[in-house]
């Protein structure tokens, strides 16, 4: 038997981890996810400028291809506003104003969902289709991908909100037994204080959402203004 481990070890001892480890993991994951997202959308940026400069068969952007700039601006503004609200919510969370943080989280959630709904409205009301040339292709591809990423981010926010809400009445206490997720066979928790998850999660999310808002603004500039 080696000196650095033994075969029999108690689970409670070996697996309880400091909460800041999760925070660090989430923090690095947020940044890494943002880099991956950047390269994903780089493909669309490249596609836009490449096809635009080629203008093959004169089909880059036939005259009737004009998306609604009003709806586009509103969608972009909603995403950016949601990013701002999440950031404010994080500030609240950091100083312990948890009720305000939850409220802001709910507002951000609503803004995000509204953005997705309005984007769908725009797709429905637009007077050209995906088959209307290069610009139309990039427009539909880019906005659709953006909405998928936005939905994922909304989901992330929802999980944090739900945790904050579920344990709203247990300020510095253990949650009731039997609530460890993903595990039907045990009563305790790996995370002694679930609320300790919210702050690092929110930090990572704030970074990512701001980043995504940046991409949304970029999409708005490229697709609507250029």
């Amino acid at each position: 038997m080696s000196e650095v481990t033994a075969n029999e070890s108690a689970y409670e001892i070996v697996e309880s981890e400091p909460a800041e480890l999760l925070g660090r993991n989430l923090g690095s994951a947020g940044h890494l996810l943002a880099s991956a997202t950047a390269f994903f959308f780089l493909a669309f940026v490249f596609a836009y400028f490449y096809l635009r400069s080629l203008n093959n068969a004169g089909m880059w952007r036939p005259n009737h291809v004009h998306p609604s700039i009003t709806l586009g601006t509103i969608v972009t503004a909603l995403v950016a506003a949601a990013a701002l609200v999440v950031r404010l919510g994080l500030a609240d969370q950091r100083v312990g104003r948890r009720v305000q943080c939850r409220t802001k989280g709910a507002i951000a959630l609503a803004l995000g969902v509204a953005a997705v709904v309005l984007q769908i409205v725009e797709w429905e009301s637009i007077d050209f289709g995906p088959a209307s040339g290069g610009y139309a292709s990039v427009f539909f591809g880019w906005t659709a991908a953006l909405m998928l990423f936005l939905l994922g981010t909304i989901y992330w926010l929802e999980t944090l909100l739900a945790t904050a809400y579920r344990y709203r009445n247990v300020p510095h206490n253990n949650p009731p037994p039997g609530e460890a997720s993903g595990d039907r066979y045990r009563t305790g928790h790996d995370i002694i204080e679930p609320l300790s998850l919210v702050t690092p999660g929110l930090e990572a999310l704030t970074f990512y959402w701001s980043f995504l808002a940046g991409i949304t603004v970029l999409a708005w500039v490229v697709l609507y203004l250029l």
């Binding site: 493909a43 596609a47 490449y50 096809l51 080629l54 203008n55 093959n56 068969a57 004169g58 089909m59 880059w60 952007r61 289709g129 995906p130 088959a131 040339g133 290069g134 610009y135 139309a136 292709s137 990039v138 539909f140 591809g141 659709a144 991908a145």
Partner: peptide, 21 residues
């Protein structure tokens, strides 16, 4: 994803006769 859109939603990312390349 672009290739999938080309094959399903009839976008033209890669069709030179329809503005793609």
């Amino acid at each position: 994803g672009m290739a999938m859109l080309d094959r399903t939603a009839q976008t033209s990312f890669f069709l030179p006769s329809a503005g793609g390349s």
